[in-house]
Design a binder for these strands. Structure first.
Lengths: 191, 191
DNA sequence: TATTGCCAACCATCTAGTAGGTAGATTTCC
DNA sequence: GGAAATCTACCTACTAGATGGTTGGCAATA
């Protein structure tokens, strides 16, 4: 049954996003899923393997969502807003970003996980850079912005907003930050 | 000797900011400071007490810096940039924000620490709101921005940029994000 | 029959925290 | 001034429980 493996991934993600990577244990996960601790090792040999699988699944979900935005939303600022709303689910459920949880423990992270983390964010930055450049070209994004810089800023803002608004002002606070972010990208003012 | 206590605070801060709160142990700290593990308990009864002291000292340092900016920098956007540069030190040393490290483990955090965390960020947001409102009033910040929303956005952006650029592009990447952030606040364009 | 999924029992190591003690400095009281 | 009591800072040795991980076996499946 592939079922248990999927449950393990799903519950582990909730645990990591809620309490951090070092903050959850195989014992917690076993209890959440309803199997014994030793059985987890059958599906994921080590905790590091589990983290890798978690990260890969998380990144794949985001990749699919990014492709979807490109396909369904033509307007530049609307694309950024749609991207921002991907983070909103976390705020609503009180769960931080999986990658942020791992990033905080950077120093203790093995090389493989570090590379996965970097790839995740660099992929998003590249995607945003493209979206912003296209937006500037087609007039849906304010001219005069610097796509590479603004791409970094957009990811940073959303990661930070998710980190903070999870316990500060919730979806309302997140919405304010996202609103201020997209307002600055909308055309309608000079350079 | 107050010396050991200060060393403990200083080394513990480095450890938490580098590897997370659950990611460091009294054994690590004892080794870093050069005393025995048990002696730490003489200065900080529990790990939670230590975290509280860490947070208090961190917040106090920021408070002093914020007051300093108000006193020395009159221009609104320059104030935001000066605020942003407070985070730069972390990027340069490869250390994340202490509060971000704790925020990631929110669910396991005792109430007292949660309140300290919220107070830290709410203080910054209130300070930024004031700086932005004053800047709009005196013309040093672009009119048409919404100070409460933009205050949340500024903290989020800087927290996020510190989180990410620590391992992505370092000070250069952080500088780009900060540049994009302040560019959007500068006057010179209509609403 | 081979594989898959799971389990009980175990292991070495690490965790924060405790108990009890020592040496030296500081304070209190006659 | 000097003895007694107290405090400070640290130590060794320990605890109970958690940690990730291993071994060997059992039952169902394919």
């Amino acid at each position: 049954m592939r079922d248990t493996r999927a449950s393990l991934l799903s519950e582990a993600e909730i645990l990591v996003r809620g309490r951090g990577y070092s903050g959850f244990s195989y014992a917690d996960l076993a209890e959440a899923v309803g199997i014994r601790k030793a059985s987890i090792h059958h599906h994921f040999r080590t905790k590091e393997d589990l983290a890798g699988a978690l990260l890969a699944a998380y990144a794949a979900r985001y990749d699919a969502a990014l492709a979807d935005i490109l396909a369904q939303t033509p307007d530049g600022v609307a694309r950024i807003e749609a991207y921002g709303k991907l983070y909103l689910g976390g705020v609503e459920q009180g769960l931080g970003c999986l990658c942020a949880a791992l990033a905080v423990e950077l120093e203790t992270l093995p090389e493989g996980l570090r590379r996965q983390l970097s790839a995740f964010f660099e992929g998003h930055i590249a995607w945003l850079e493209r979206v912003l450049a296209e937006g500037v070209a087609d007039g849906s994004v304010r001219p005069g912005i610097d796509p590479p810089s603004h791409a970094r800023m957009v990811v940073a803002t959303l990661e930070g907003a998710l980190l903070l608004e999870r316990f500060l002002a919730g979806p309302a606070g997140f919405g304010q930050a996202l609103g201020a972010l997209s307002a600055g990208l909308r055309p309608g003012s000079g350079s």
